[in-house]
């Protein structure tokens, strides 16, 4: 806001645009509503972690320390080796599968194969896991469990100690696997065809023949994988 004073805004359109894009109007009336939270109140809720490691708490852990914790608190959904139980998320492996497509194969998006930043792993476990007891883990436990999951993905050594100085430095294999949204990405016809359009209307799939998929039939779908995520 301080970049563009109100008088300058009238002079420089570019500056005005910057103001619109980045900051709220300056001369708003103080409504006198709300209170200034104490630093302790903010700190109690401000537990998120950024890719550069900002937000990582004091404490430390190793995969070795994390293994028993993981087996007790995580493995009943994610499997002893991060392979996933039932439809719960797979955490390990899946390397070199991201370009696979049904029906020849399927991509396995795991912490190791897909996640671009290690910070995300700490952040998520710290604020949202274990699923039935979120926010119950100490920083040491989160470091240790995170280390064990990274170890299952061959990204850290079993006895490597992780803390706020080195956790965010771990290089994730799919760090460069993402493209900023380029949509609209499908070619747009200038004038959509209205009459005698050259399309092949042969039916190549029928939902009525996918046994057990649609609720109302008490059957698990056979031979189809339609994983939505969790």
């Amino acid at each position: 806001m301080s970049v563009c004073a109100t008088s300058m805004r009238k002079l420089f359109a570019g500056c005005a645009l910057l103001v619109l894009a980045q900051a709220a109007p300056a001369a708003a009336e103080d409504l006198g509503l709300g209170v200034v939270p104490t630093p302790e109140q903010i700190a109690g809720w401000d537990k998120d972690i950024r890719p550069d490691g900002v937000g990582l708490p004091d404490g430390s852990g190793t995969a070795e320390e994390g293994e028993p914790l993981y087996l007790e608190k995580c493995a009943y959904c994610h499997g002893d080796f991060g392979e996933g139980v039932g439809r719960w998320p797979v955490l390990a492996g899946g390397f070199d599968t991201l370009s696979e497509q049904w029906p020849e194969g399927r991509p396995e998006k795991t912490v190791g194969s897909y996640w671009p930043y290690s910070s995300t792993l700490f952040d998520y476990i710290w604020r949202a896991m274990p699923f039935p007891e979120p926010k119950s883990l100490t920083p040491d436990e989160v470091y240790a469990i995170s280390a064990y999951i990274l170890y299952l993905n061959d990204l850290v050594e079993y006895d490597q100690r992780l803390d706020k100085t080195n956790f965010a430095q771990i290089e994730m294999p799919n760090r460069d696997g993402f493209i900023m949204d380029p949509r609209p990405d499908v070619p747009i016809p200038e004038k959509p065809c209205m009459k005698d359009c050259p399309v092949d209307t042969t039916v190549i799939g029928r939902a009525g023949q996918v046994e057990g998929a649609t609720p109302g039939e008490d059957v698990q779908p056979a031979g189809i994988e339609m994983y939505l995520g969790e």
Partner: peptide
């Protein structure tokens, strides 16, 4: 009425 998928390649 059934949910169907058409081939749709431009003929």
């Amino acid at each position: 009425v059934e949910n169907v998928r058409l081939r749709y390649v431009n003929a």
